[in-house]
Amino acid sequence: MASSRVTAPALRFAPTALLIVLEAWVAWDLVSIADRRWAAGLSVLFAVNLAAMALARMARRRWPRWIGLVALGSTYVVAHSFALGIQLTAALAFLSLMIVQVEIRILAERFAPLFVDTLSPIQRKQISGALLRALFRLAVAAILSVGLPLLAADLATAGVFPVTTIPTALLLSAGLVAVVLMVALLPTLERRDRGKA
């Protein structure tokens, strides 16, 4: 019996579709840069991204995909930071779309081929439920990752929260460092606990 497939075709093709949207977005931005030097430099970065993505597809390796995504994000951020100017809503949408693309690709890979030959209807239902829960969390994360910074920007521009001061920047940096440390150290602490147990 053929192996069961739980993933809907839409989920299987969503990562590619999202990637095409992101590539087209950045290409459109590059076309609209008036300064030729910036346009030429960023075109090289964009070409690196395209080459890495093509390599990732052909060689079925992870590292070219990561290089491609970093090059794509860098092209967008640098283009808007130094040549086009930043439109906050569009930039947040772009960044969230990138994260969603990566997450959906991982979900599609994970749920696509289930390695059991036959799945009982109950197991099929459980897996579909797990997929729906994952997609729901992803949707919530995407909405919040656009909404919360916009809210923060609104508060800042309204003068409620002094964004441009040094203490605010330091506070944000400290918060970020704390999160990064947490992400980096948690596995080590867990391993120690396991060793003691």
């Binding site: 930071s81 930039a91 960044l95 994260i99 944000l172 970020l176």
Partner: peptide, 11 residues
Amino acid sequence: WQIVLLALPPI
């Protein structure tokens, strides 16, 4: 400050 705010979505 707009770029600083862009650090928020991954977090």
